[in-house]
């Protein structure tokens, strides 16, 4: 028996990166593994992906997946701008951004919201653990109010909710998940890859070294105990037929993605949520926060909002594929402009 390959003849190993230098058991490693699994499963050509990150533990992780894809480890909180430039330069590329709660919720909150507002076509993953790991355990802006940490003491400030911030910036796809829920992370990643605008995935990813107490909502024990999934999610690529279980039609919602694929959501009782209803999305997050619930799943999606390629009226060909003949106007064009300036 030969080694298993996907539809484009690549092995799973072809999607791996360098060995992780993060802590054993770090939620980030699990997320990296799901990215590898999904790209292999969907037979994505690695050279069509770019990996982008800021600074922090999360931002190191793109080195640990998709070693055959170009990547850029940018500045703290400034990955959205860099991603925007790259994706405008080459619209054939699929951007996977990996950020953390310090990177997105503090230093980079402004860039994050402006990226969402522009609807830059890319996946933006926040590996959210509520703590600064590389600097040894300070609270981040997503840390729970009232939480206590050995290094940082008591946190008396309310957390910033990444999903709420995204919604307020008119996000076109936002979901929350838990690094310990590998299947859900995979299905959401697949859906995000089919989305034509910014897809924000806020993935609670426990820090096993500095913030894994069960008092923290960003810990494994808390996540395992309290996760309330909004839906059972099944992603159906465009080349597979849609088979929806029709026994409970009121409980099933199929969201058609921009590229023709479908996201099938089976509602779980007692949580009923329509992910195309923005006000309901706001309410859901706020209610969950008040009740200390840990809601995961697709919170909001809008497949119609134009992305930045559309709002800038960019040509279909990637800008970087244009040649000198396309880019440099002719000598006659210069003469004409100079004629208009001089008129004499």
């Amino acid at each position: 028996m030969g080694t298993r390959v996907n539809q484009i003849g690549l092995q799973r190993n072809d999607y791996k990166g360098r060995p992780s230098t993060l802590c054993q058991g770090c939620g980030h490693n699990s997320i990296s593994n799901q990215i590898i699994a999904v790209c292999y499963e969907l037979s994505i050509e690695p050279h069509r992906i770019i990996k982008l990150s800021g600074i922090g533990c999360s931002s190191k992780s793109p080195a640990y997946f998709l070693g055959r894809s170009h990547g850029f480890n940018a500045l703290h909180g400034r990955m959205p701008a860099l991603a925007t430039g790259a994706i405008m330069a080459n619209r054939d590329l699929t951007g996977i951004g990996v950020s953390g709660d310090g990177d997105t919720g503090s230093i980079g909150l402004g860039q994050f919201k402006h990226m969402v507002r522009r609807n830059v076509p890319m996946i933006y993953i926040v590996e959210n653990n509520g703590v600064y790991g590389l600097t040894k355990g300070q609270f981040s802006a997503t840390a729970d109010i009232g939480q206590e940490l050995k290094y940082a003491g008591l946190n008396e400030l309310p957390p910033i909710d990444i999903c709420l911030e995204a919604l307020a910036a008119d996000v076109s796809f936002v979901a929350r998940s838990f690094a310990g829920d590998a299947k859900q992370v995979r299905e959401l990643l697949k859906a995000a890859l089919s989305h034509k605008g910014t897809a924000v995935l806020d993935i609670i990813s426990p820090c096993v070294t500095f913030n894994n107490h069960e008092t923290s909502t960003k810990s494994y024990p808390y996540g395992k105990l309290h996760e309330e999934a909004l839906q059972d999610i099944t992603f159906i690529p465009e080349y597979d037929p849609i088979i929806v279980d029709v026994h409970e039609p009121g409980q099933v919602q199929a969201v058609r993605m921009h590229d023709g694929s479908h996201l099938v959501l089976r509602k779980l009782d007692p949580v009923k949520h329509d992910p195309t209803d923005k006000l309901a999305a706001f309410r859901l997050i706020e209610e969950a926060r008040i009740e200390n619930q840990f809601i995961t799943g697709l919170i909001y999606v809008d497949e119609h909002r134009p992305n930045l390629h559309e709002t800038t009226h960019l040509i279909q060909a990637p800008l970087v594929h244009l040649t000198e003949a396309d880019l440099r106007p002719s000598a006659e064009a210069l003469d004409r402009v100079l004629g208009e300036i001089c008129c004499q």
Binding site: L75, A81, A83, T84, G85, M88, A89, N90, L327
Partner: peptide, 20 residues
């Protein structure tokens, strides 16, 4: 851009991707 940090960040992304 939203500020000059964003502006130059976009340039770095674009320049890296091969654009002028």
């Amino acid at each position: 851009a939203e500020d000059e940090i964003g502006a130059i960040g976009m340039l770095v992304g674009a320049g890296w991707a091969g654009a002028r």
